[in-house]
Amino acid sequence: MYYLGIDMGSTSTKVIVLNENKEIHYKKVVPTGWNCLDTANGILEELKNNGIERDDFKCVATGYGRISVPYMDKTITEISCHGKGACYLFNEKNFTVIDIGGQDTKVIEIENGAVKNFNMNDKCSAGTGKFLEIMANTLGVDINSLCELARSSKNHISISSMCTVFAESEVVSLIGRGTSKEDIAYGVVDSITNKVRGQMGKITGTNNVVRLTGGLCEIPFILDSLSEKLGTEVKSDPLGRYAGALGASLFACNIK
């Protein structure tokens, strides 16, 4: 038997397959695209090509597209799945997970290996991966280069607009004023990590162990900026973006 976890996020869909020994047998990231159902069926096809038929696995789906996976046995929210996956990934029991996703940013407080408290950003894209993506586009670079540019900024500026649309025009006017790309890039990253800091504050627990998951978790400058803001070293893992899918696959192991 295999245990399939699918984390269908707004931008990308993460897939993890565990074997009987709870080891990662297969993993993949695909763009979610417009049609969640097509994406889900594509994954099923891929698994078949890898010799895994529908009857060979139990499946838990999570993420905003979780209900669009027609062959899932169960849906569990991304909060629980991220918590579970992060415990496994980081081998920790009492810590805080920050997940910067495409559409939302979550802060999850874990106590004794279970979700104790969590916070998700409000209904706008400030402080999310989407925000970073739009700003990178405006600057004509990709996300990774934006974060590296930010590191070499000489004059730290701040972007004050909370709303992505307004922030974009703020960036445009900074470009117009001749502000360097590095400084603007710094302002962009700074605005995201500040937002995350605010969200952390909404969780009353006092955890010094902080881990980052999600699509941005491998970008060094994001980790540095977060560590500075939170006053503690924020670490990640190369599998960080799979935390949700991993948690889902672990939950799938419990399905009878």
Partner: peptide
């Protein structure tokens, strides 16, 4: 506009 997000939060809260 936030129906989906609210539902996820409530589901997650009840799961915990």
């Amino acid at each position: 506009s936030d129906d989906g997000q609210i539902d996820t939060r409530i589901a997650a809260f009840l799961e915990t």
